[in-house]
Design a protein around this nucleic acid. Structure first.
Lengths: 107, 107
DNA sequence: TAGGGTACTTACTCTGAAGTAAGTTTTTGA
DNA sequence: TCAAAAACTTACTTCAGAGTAAGTACCCTA
């Protein structure tokens, strides 16, 4: 059963979601991890050349705090840290697809 | 047929959509107009008490420019301006629903 | 002719997200 | 013992988006 939404509460709910996605680089990061891909910090750096280390970490940390990405540390030298999506994070994919399809459908 | 997306192009596509939705007040406005509702400027003002006239207009103009809301002017005294969603704007509703459902599904 | 209601504009300030650039930690191997 | 690679951290600056507050155009009615 779906909740009863008021305009205000529905807008609020969507805004919570947008807040998660809103960072300048989060979507690029997400799309690099969709489909069960696992990437190291340095791989993401290479895949997104324009991003700075600071921003990459900041965005990853926020995504992690929001429960969308998982961080796995390997205690090696040199260190290795892998990032992947949580189950919940993967489920975001179809929802974003819906937005893309909507955008394509502009008359 | 669906386009072939790279991480970068997909992220870009979603970002275009987010840009449309991103204003501080756009979602509230949208949810007040979903379902074919038609509202006057002053009705929206009342429905969203915290918004200032400047922001209301600004957001409405941007939504209009993006092809999501329609503006109908009645040349009366006092003036009357009605806002409603375009067909494309209405179609946004299910896509936002998908996001809401995703958010509810957080483990 | 003065006031009132509706739909805007304009000028200013403020704040937080993003950018830049440099420094830090850890341990191995030459 | 010192450089090198990976994954961060820190300090500073910049700028666009949002807020505040006031003003404007229109024209009817009293």
């Amino acid at each position: 059963m779906t909740k009863k939404w008021t305009p205000a509460s529905a807008a609020d709910g969507v805004e919570q979601v947008l807040k998660i996605l809103e960072g300048k680089w989060k979507l690029v990061i997400l799309f690099h991890l969709f489909g069960g891909q696992v990437k190291r910090f340095s791989e993401l750096e290479k895949a997104i050349p324009a991003i700075t280390q600071k921003m990459l970490i900041q965005q990853l940390r926020q995504l992690e705090a929001d429960g969308i990405v998982t961080r796995t540390i390997y205690h090696q030298v040199p260190p290795k840290v892998e990032y992947s999506l949580t189950d919940w994070g993967q489920e975001l994919c179809p929802a974003l697809d819906a937005l893309l399809k909507w955008a394509e459908n502009k008359k």
